[in-house]
Design a protein around this nucleic acid. Structure first.
Lengths: 160, 160
DNA sequence: TGCGATCACTTGCCTGGGCAAGTCATTCCG
DNA sequence: CGGAATGACTTGCCCAGGCAAGTGATCGCA
């Protein structure tokens, strides 16, 4: 009746349903906690965290956008908001006037430090606590395959 | 130096990074394909699919919103767009005037049938093709634990 | 050297979605 | 029976993000 190559079998459908739940509800749960406790979204937290890990807490916007899976307009507008809160400062890259450098301020670093424990606890509670050590290892192995596929997809050929 | 219960170890950080990639890039990839080939988002596809599976392709909006992980305002506005494209019709529930019933039209069903193969192929390509049968089974086991946790989270206590 | 091409970012416009308030139907309870 | 309480949407307002066009800076090549 069904084309085997077109449809998913029962096991795949169950996995797919759970995966859909995770990709929808997990970001939503992370956003709720961070919004409530720190007044920022999961994406905003990720940007601050990436910046804090960079050398001298400074990165070019294009590079920051890339590692944060963001577009440049989106990041540009976020930087406007962060500058208004004085969490970052922008300045022109002295070595190439086309680039803009963003640097985390002390206030931004403080904000990140205050938000981190609650966020990490949420990640631990929702993702790692429900798993045994073996399940965690297996999840990691499978996720790395899927994540690699998606990264190739995004980088080179967003063929759809 | 670090509180063991506060921070993630290296294995967990790697898994977390891959999971972040998946929850961000997977919906984006699904949206791109569906938008390009069918002029709709992944969420819109899910709503049509759920409706098509219901008895007589009809559901109450509140029930449809629940199974689609949507809010009522969001779904209400989507129904406006779907009605404009004549993919669904709305009518008051005769058994209780507070409810609104949505029914998939023939046009909506046709649209779904045309979109399904490409969407399923994309899911298969991005999620299942990179995995061995064993990895797939392991992924399913771990995901079901995490998904269950998230569903409890959403239903009862969005404690954050 | 100078002018067009490229690059990095910014801005404007539009759409989708969240939240809170409003509307209408039904139920509860005196 | 009637008014208050509840329930199921719907609407209005606001903001974040996508895309396309605009702005400077730098590069390439004649």
């Amino acid at each position: 009746m069904d084309e085997p190559s077109t449809w998913l079998d029962t096991e795949q459908q169950d996995i797919w349903q759970d995966l859909l739940t995770v990709v929808i509800a997990l970001p939503a749960a992370l956003d709720r906690q961070l919004q409530r406790d720190a007044g920022m979204s999961n994406f905003e937290y990720g940007v601050l965290a990436r910046l804090s890990m960079a050398h001298e807490a400074t990165m070019r916007l294009s590079e920051l956008a890339r590692v944060c899976d963001s577009t440049l307009p989106r990041l540009s507008k976020l930087m406007d908001r962060f500058e208004a809160r004085e969490w970052i400062v922008r300045r022109v890259d002295p070595s190439d006037g086309r680039y803009t450098l963003a640097t985390l301020t002390d206030g931004g670093r403080r904000q990140l430090a205050e938000s981190a424990p609650g966020h990490v606890a949420q990640v631990r509670r929702l993702v790692f606590d429900p798993l045994t050590a073996v399940q965690r290892r297996h999840l990691g192995a499978a996720l790395s395959r899927v994540a690699d596929t998606l990264r190739r997809e995004t980088d080179c050929g967003p063929t759809g």
